[in-house]
């Protein structure tokens, strides 16, 4: 059989010519969109690091700079709302650069008809979240769009943090043999949103894990742990985070499925919908790559923080010159842990 024999297969959709929801799902389609449209247009050494934020040199001081937009529906969900997300998400992106989060901007796109009271509740959440994370919201912007042209409220935050150490932190600094540490159980945010959005009722309420992670990161750095890479596990979950790092660093990462904690309600909800918790979004979970010899000490530091008390070791950097994540399954066989193509879609049966 020659390779041309399959040319007559059911017609392929070769390239999507318009944006699909799947382009925002944190999977391979989104990576392709970023590569094709944004990286090719904006490429520069800081962007090309492909980190959660850019590291900038401002006359001898190192700063971290990042931005993120929040379009969550519903605006309020168990464990948080769009305001707590908008603050913690950007705080966490700065923390993943090894920076101390300092200043945030807040941009609001309001849809005509949004109750002012709703906006006030969101803003009050943002004030509390900023106070908890130790950041100031120092500038902002407000726009209003016609009814039907927004989903009530969109928020954008950008953030600046200061880097107060000389550690190089990022995917390219991961080393062979590094231990991979996870700060707690997975999947709470994604399944909390899913259950509210779809009106699904499970045995216990699932609350979002939305939380600032800067304390954990500052703790690791102040304890003198030579951290190599940090990543918060948002869209696409643990699988996306590990795959992005593996492909940027050209390494093979190996994790043990048994070592990854998932709470019973989240597992139950995932089983019902046919979701894999390794791909579900989190808003208060991170992974850290540290030298094997520092792993136990780093875990103790992470566990000392209330948002890291479930920290555990999930895997190791096995070899270089590959961009691959493998997983040892519960029954002891090894397989690939791949990026999803787009979003996880609930299955038929």
């Amino acid at each position: 059989m020659t390779s041309d024999d399959t040319a007559g297969c059911p017609l392929p959709i070769s390239q999507y010519t318009q944006v699909l929801m799947a382009h925002g799902g944190g999977g391979r389609l989104m990576q392709q969109l970023i590569e094709r449209v944004f990286v090719s247009a904006f490429s520069n050494p800081r962007l090309d690091e492909r980190h959660d934020g850019a590291i900038l040199d401002a006359q001898g001081r190192r700063l971290a700079f990042t931005t993120d937009s929040y379009v969550v529906h519903p605006l309020f969900f168990p464990g948080g709302d769009i305001g707590t997300l908008a603050v913690n998400g950007t705080v966490n992106d700065l923390a993943m650069c090894g920076a101390r989060p300092r200043w945030l901007s807040a941009g609001f796109i309001l849809e005509e008809g949004l109750p002012i009271e709703t906006l006030e509740r969101v803003v009050a959440s943002m004030r509390r979240a900023a106070a908890t994370a130790g950041v100031e919201i120092v500038t902002g912007d407000t726009k209003v769009v016609e009814k039907g042209k927004g989903d009530g409220l969109f928020v954008n935050t950008a953030g600046v943090g200061t880097i107060e150490h000389d550690l190089p932190i990022g995917p390219r600094h991961v080393k062979l043999g590094d231990a991979i540490l996870l700060s707690g159980d997975l999947g709470r945010h994604g399944m909390a949103i899913q259950s509210v959005r779809e009106g699904l009722e499970f045995e216990g309420p699932i609350e979002s894990d939305c939380a600032p992670l800067a304390d954990i990161v500052m703790g690791l750095i102040e304890a003198g742990i030579p951290v190599h890479c940090l990543r918060d596990l948002t869209r696409g979950g643990l699988a996306a985070g590990l795959n992005e790092i593996a492909s940027t660093a050209r390494i093979q990462i190996d994790i043990a499925e048994n070592a990854v904690p998932v709470s019973e309600p989240v597992r139950g909800a995932c089983e019902i919908l046919g979701f894999d918790p390794l791909y579900v979004a989190n808003e208060g979970r991170m992974i850290a790559f540290v030298p094997e010899s520092d792993a136990e000490r780093a875990l103790a530091v992470m566990r000392a923080s209330p948002v890291g008390d479930g920290a555990c070791r999930i895997g190791t950097v096995l070899s270089d010159a590959q961009g691959l994540v493998t997983l040892k399954s519960r029954i002891g066989a090894r397989r690939i842990l791949d990026l999803l193509s787009g979003e996880q879609l609930p299955r038929i049966c």
Binding site: L11, L20, P346
Partner: peptide
């Protein structure tokens, strides 16, 4: 539709693209 039918290619396009073009395609459980 159930979610996983949305990505199946037909002769020329798929339901995800219909949705992106303004069609009211909804995932139900």
């Amino acid at each position: 539709s159930f979610g996983d039918m949305l990505r199946v290619p037909g002769s020329h396009t798929d339901l995800l693209s219909v949705k992106a073009n303004g069609g009211d395609v909804r995932i139900v459980y």
